[in-house]
């Protein structure tokens, strides 16, 4: 224990020593202030802080790697369904091949020909609609 601290504690037992106690209180406060100053000095940074060499490059590399991995994630997402999609296409082709009347490539791929005569026939048989003549007939 410091000398002034001892004297201060002793002075507490003796009410007659008010002046001395005040002096010692001042000394104690000054001591505390000095201690705080020492702490502040110890805490203060003395040299420029750094994360080490090539820090900026490491950051850039991480950003680029993160962007790349996002692209890869999207690819992976679709890759997961790649097999299922191929299976579905093969199944459709097989179904077409089995269901077709004649085994041609167009039938397997499910390409249907619409005959132009069919559509014109339909128009002629059904006739045209004349609004005014229908109105008069009724």
């Amino acid at each position: 224990m410091k000398n002034w601290e001892e004297k201060y504690l002793m002075s507490l037992d003796d009410p007659a020593q008010q002046v001395r106690r005040d002096m010692l209180t001042d000394a104690a406060q000054q001591g505390v202030a000095e201690q705080h100053a020492r702490i502040r000095e110890g805490a203060r940074r003395k040299s420029p802080a750094t994360f080490g060499p090539w820090f900026a490059q490491k950051v850039i590399r991480r950003i680029q790697a993160a962007a790349q991995s996002t692209d890869e994630l999207i690819l992976q997402f679709f890759r997961r369904y790649q097999l299922a999609a191929i299976g579905l296409v093969v199944a459709l082709l097989a179904f077409n091949a089995l269901a077709a009347d004649k085994l041609s490539m167009r039938a397997i791929l499910g390409i249907e020909d619409t005959a132009t005569t069919e559509s014109t026939d339909a128009e002629t048989t059904e006739g045209t609609f004349d609004y005014f003549s229908d109105l008069n007939n009724n």
Binding site: P48, A49, T50, F51, F55, A56, K58
Partner: peptide
């Protein structure tokens, strides 16, 4: 260039809080 310019300020705070080391560098990045 921005990273390089502000590295010191960020490093001071992160190392002050965590101490120097891999963890601090990781947080800095």
């Amino acid at each position: 260039q921005l990273v390089h310019r502000h590295e010191s300020q960020v490093a001071a705070v992160v190392c002050g809080m965590l101490g120097k080391g891999e963890e601090a560098e990781d947080v800095g990045q």
